[in-house]
Amino acid sequence: MLSGEVDVSAAAQLRSVHGLLDRHGQRATVEAAGVTFVDVAGLRALLELASPAGSLLVVHPSAAVLRLLDLLRCSGLGPQELRAGPREEAVLLREPGVAAPPTPSTPGRPAAR
């Protein structure tokens, strides 16, 4: 669970978490309902927690997180956002330039693109 301000001062702590996850071969899922402020440096540090495939699941992103994602999307910057439901429930963030994993196909039907 992540709460409070996620900015450049939190980056070192997030890098420590990333190192711990790497050592144990784990992926991160971030619960972000308690985030009151996030800047680009904080988002960059969060994205460093992404899986080897380049994605990070953010559950219950706060208004501050969603606002920054909106600003970055409008400017053509920032991570790609994937979701299967309302973005207030969860977003899957993917670094720009990282290809999405292939969608499995149903026998007799081509894979979704």
Score class of each variant (00 low, 15 high):
6 V>N: 05
44 R>T: 13
66 L>F: 05
87 R>E: 00
91 V>R: 00
12 A>G: 12
111 A>V: 11
94 R>P: 07
61 P>R: 02
95 E>D: 03
50 A>T: 04
113 R>D: 15
50 A>D: 08
42 G>S: 09
87 R>G: 06
10 A>D: 01
14 L>G: 07
24 H>Y: 03
34 G>I: 12
2 L>G: 01
12 A>E: 14
94 R>T: 09
27 R>T: 06
53 A>D: 13
36 T>I: 07
19 G>V: 11
91 V>W: 01
32 A>Y: 04
93 L>E: 01
97 G>K: 03
63 A>G: 05
3 S>K: 13
52 P>V: 10
19 G>Y: 11
70 D>Y: 01
87 R>C: 08
78 G>T: 05
86 P>G: 14
35 V>L: 08
20 L>V: 09
15 R>Y: 11
92 L>H: 08
1 M>I: 06
90 A>Y: 00
38 V>H: 02
45 A>S: 10
51 S>R: 10
89 E>T: 09
30 V>N: 01
56 L>I: 06
100 A>N: 11
95 E>F: 10
37 F>I: 00
57 L>Y: 00
86 P>N: 13
101 P>N: 06
59 V>K: 14
104 P>Q: 04
80 Q>Y: 07
112 A>I: 08
63 A>K: 03
111 A>C: 12
58 V>P: 06
17 V>R: 05
